[in-house]
Design a protein around this nucleic acid. Sequence first.
DNA 1: AATCATTGGATCAGTTGTAGACCATTGACT
DNA 2: AGTCAATGGTCTACAACTGATCCAATGATT
Lengths: 232, 232
Amino acid sequence: MREQIRPTVPPVRVGNVFEETMERLVRSIRLGQFPPGSRLPSERDLAEELRVSRTTLREALAELKASSYVTVRRGRYGGSYVADALPHRPAAPLDADEVSDILTLRRILEPAAAELAAERGPTGPQREELWSLHVELTECSVGQYRPLDSRLHLRIAELSGTPSLLAAVADTRARVNSLLDRIPLLPTNLDHANAQHTEVVVAILDGDPAAARAAMLDHLDGTAALLRGFLG
Amino acid sequence: MREQIRPTVPPVRVGNVFEETMERLVRSIRLGQFPPGSRLPSERDLAEELRVSRTTLREALAELKASSYVTVRRGRYGGSYVADALPHRPAAPLDADEVSDILTLRRILEPAAAELAAERGPTGPQREELWSLHVELTECSVGQYRPLDSRLHLRIAELSGTPSLLAAVADTRARVNSLLDRIPLLPTNLDHANAQHTEVVVAILDGDPAAARAAMLDHLDGTAALLRGFLG
DNA sequence: AATCATTGGATCAGTTGTAGACCATTGACT
DNA sequence: AGTCAATGGTCTACAACTGATCCAATGATT
């Protein structure tokens, strides 16, 4: 008789509400969803979006403030403002299996997203925004590169017109970011990445799905090689 | 000045713990992770896996029992047993955007999973199990088809050797299932699907990635057309 | 027939998270 | 200079969830 194989059922909840909330916020900031210098929604609004009590949200915000992710100002027109340069994270050791897992999934998702974005063809304002995001990325300071890079990639995924794909890309990108935090950010690589971004963006604007996919694949394999290199 | 576009931050938690637990169990059962007739882990074990108190888990199980997903027996060697034929779900109206969203993502993930599975090449026991799952599917009763079908697809995703991909496939498959629950299960389609499954499985066993991807794509587009047809 | 480990069933004190009201502060606007 | 709406800061009563203990039932094993 065949041995009964039962994949484990993943936990309903990881950590408590406070921890999850905290993680969500850090993630959103590192993904460039709230770019450096921008303002978070008011506590009341954010709590509602996250479906969390304001009390709990405030605990998380206090933690973010303590780790200097944000600065908080009171009064009307006050709020929580994202720091201009994000704090460094404690570097955990790289696990080869995890690296391979993340990179494999990303290699499936992002080229498909770029391809779909090119197929759909962005509207006028979307075209301008996509290009300006790219330009902003080439001009920003090194300390702001990662979140703005993520923001560009997420915007492309959004242009695929497939919300679930965007969510999946955001998930993997958050994980990739935590890997990238463990290796240095070299100017040479940035130039290379910027050139590749140009290719991807142009292909999307040209409505050339195959080129968009190919350029994205090329781009991803670049950083993938970089990451694998740091595994020894 | 460019209008500030801020994608919404998804909720930290959807529903309360009870509802989430309940949903997880229903999902696992409908995905064939606990096939018809099989036994769930003991309440203590399940609660631990789901990271939920036994109290809450029991509330969810009580609900499952009430909707005749499971039958419960007391005493040693007792436990919760999955029903032989799963209950029908209330049919919500099909939303065209949601259908397209799910099908698009699935079309990205599952062919990639099949391709990777073929590339890797299953080990001896895995080969036998994969084939026997397929055979089981061709021989089962109509009431058991959906969960066993899902189980086969998940097993293929698992053979990709990429845990995150498996998780993503499971997610989309759960959503596809909820769509499929709204359209009838025609014997003609089943025969067709079984033939396509054969192609996919054979390609994987042959270690032919391109064929595996192509066969899976073909298979998915079949049911996709079916679903789109029911949108009018 | 008796044993007993394992399972579901029930209860309760303690902790975590929520909802809402209210206060304190700020700065654009009049 | 004064107003006031929106924001962060604080507190409290309430609900949800936990974890721990104990009870009741079952059936393979002896």
